[in-house]
């Protein structure tokens, strides 16, 4: 090829792509990390608030002498997505294998948040019975290879209020 003035435009586009990539990673890392620690702080705080409202996976968990004042189906859902940095990290992990830690914290946050929302809905109930937690992937990236889409976590159970 004799000369590039034109083809350089292509190369510069690559350069730009590279810079965009690095910038996105940096934004993803800093913003993502900050958001995550903020979220965890809030989750811990609310978990302490709801410490007296237990959720259990069992169905018949009440003593015979306890009298029920009311029951209600409660649920909480949350949709979360990975930041750019973690997405790339997960992509790299997909090549080498091993535990995808970056992904784990995301799901962990989502689950705890969903349970907290269900508990919030339960209000001043005394216990949530038969708690179930479902996870599903949604969004356009959900089924693309190596692409991590958004995840929805749904937590639901039966809130029971006892007569005092």
């Amino acid at each position: 090829m004799a000369q590039p003035s034109g083809s350089n435009r292509g190369k510069e586009a690559h350069m730009e792509q590279l810079i965009t990539f690095v910038v996105l990673i940096a934004i993803g890392y800093f913003a993502g990390t900050a958001a995550e620690s903020r979220h965890y702080r809030s989750i811990r705080e609310r978990e302490r608030q709801f410490l007296n409202l237990p959720a259990v996976t069992a169905r018949n968990f009440l003593d015979d002498r306890e009298e029920v004042a009311g029951t209600m189906l409660v649920y909480g859902n949350v949709v979360v997505s990975l930041d750019y940095f973690k997405r790339i990290l997960a992509g790299l992990r997909n090549i080498f294998g091993g535990e995808v830690k970056s992904y784990l914290t995301l799901i962990d946050r989502a689950r705890r948040e969903a349970v907290l929302r269900a508990k919030k809905m339960a209000g001043n109930a005394d216990i949530i019975l038969n708690l179930r937690i479902e996870t599903s992937s949604i969004g356009q990236n959900a089924n693309r290879k190596n692409a991590v889409g958004s995840i929805e976590v749904l937590a639901y159970g039966t809130a029971v209020t006892l007569k005092k």
Binding site: P54, R93, F96, G97, E99
Partner: peptide, 15 residues
């Protein structure tokens, strides 16, 4: 009883 406990892991297979 102490309420719900859970554990999870995400694993990827290598290429």
């Amino acid at each position: 009883h102490f309420g719900v406990v859970s554990g999870s892991t995400v694993r990827a297979k290598h290429v």
